[in-house]
């Protein structure tokens, strides 16, 4: 029987198919677009560090950008770790419930709201000169500068999830430790962190996932050279920044290579986020 309720349910169900269509269409389109590149280079596409668009000698490999992505994201994570860790303890434990904590929390939320391109600008005009002044390299571009801006960008994500996890630690466990003579530091290290450990870990995984896919700010700071960066202050490219940079003049095999990199990026971020979500579900 086709009554009103049934129709509503069918309509809702059909709408939900849109999500399936978009997601599967996305994978199919990326795969289809990547076929020429994978046909030409095969598995070598992933392990080759050659990126040569010269006509006739065209050769594309994704390795420099995979390494660039991992390097910038790890730098971002390492810088983000102590800062997000401290800030989440500040908001979630030490000043919990105070006006000060909600003020700091609001500032962290604002950090999350700044568009990537504004971060890029600020990084270009403020951070990059600092890196030059410190004498790390002449231009200030490079993997480190990009990682630094990424760190600032992902701190809010790591912080806000960590705060939730820290707040979830039961108060009576903390009180039990205090009643045995523990100081706040003892309580943080012996009770809060062991209990919130997996949640805090997850927050860093998700922050890492965000860093991997960030585009504009990285594009403006990494120096955009298509080689494997040899050091912290060497220039490079990430998978996302490469697409942003090279898309404009790309067609044929080069476009296909960019799509192949987008496909890799899609899978990498999907894996990282899926892993993070799985951990959260287990909590």
């Amino acid at each position: 029987m086709l009554n009103g309720e049934r129709i509503t349910k069918i309509v809702l169900f059909l709408t939900s198919l849109i999500i399936i269509f978009i997601a599967s269409g996305m994978v199919l389109t990326l795969m289809e677009g990547a076929i020429p590149a994978f046909k030409e280079f095969g598995f070598k596409f992933i392990i080759s560090s050659d990126w040569n668009p010269t006509d006739g000698r065209e050769s594309y490999g994704a390795l420099p950008f995979i390494i660039g992505t991992i390097a910038t994201s790890i730098i971002a994570l390492l810088i983000c770790l102590p800062l997000a860790f401290s800030t989440s303890l500040f908001i979630g434990e030490i000043y919990r419930g105070t006006k000060l904590a909600s003020f700091i929390g609001m500032m962290v939320d604002m950090l999350a709201g700044i568009p990537s391109i504004v971060y890029g600008l600020w990084g270009f005009y403020v951070l990059r000169p600092w890196v030059v002044d410190m004498g790390f390299n002449d231009q200030g571009y490079g993997v480190f500068t990009a990682g630094l801006i990424l760190a600032i960008m992902v701190i809010p994500y790591a912080t806000s999830i960590s705060v939730e996890m820290i707040k979830m630690v039961q108060n009576d466990l903390k009180e039990a430790a205090y009643s045995l003579g523990a100081t706040r530091k003892d309580v943080i290290f012996s009770v809060i962190l062991p209990n919130a450990r997996s949640g805090i870990f997850t927050s860093y995984i998700l922050a890492f996932g965000r860093a991997v896919g960030e585009t504009m700010a990285v594009t403006m700071l990494i120096g955009n050279s298509n080689i494997i960066p040899k050091g912290l202050f060497d220039t490079g490219n990430t998978m996302a920044s490469l697409i942003a940079n090279q898309f404009g003049e790309a067609d044929g095999l080069k476009l296909s290579s960019l799509v192949a990199i987008a496909l890799l990026l899609f899978f990498i971020t999907g894996l990282i986020n899926g892993f993070g979500k799985l951990l959260i579900k287990k909590l």
Partner: peptide
Amino acid sequence: KYAVIVKDITDILQGVPSIVLGLISYFW
């Protein structure tokens, strides 16, 4: 089960880098 799958896919979509979405919109 189907709804759980839709939910998981939604979560995956949320994590897709915006540049990839741009690429998709370009092709479509």
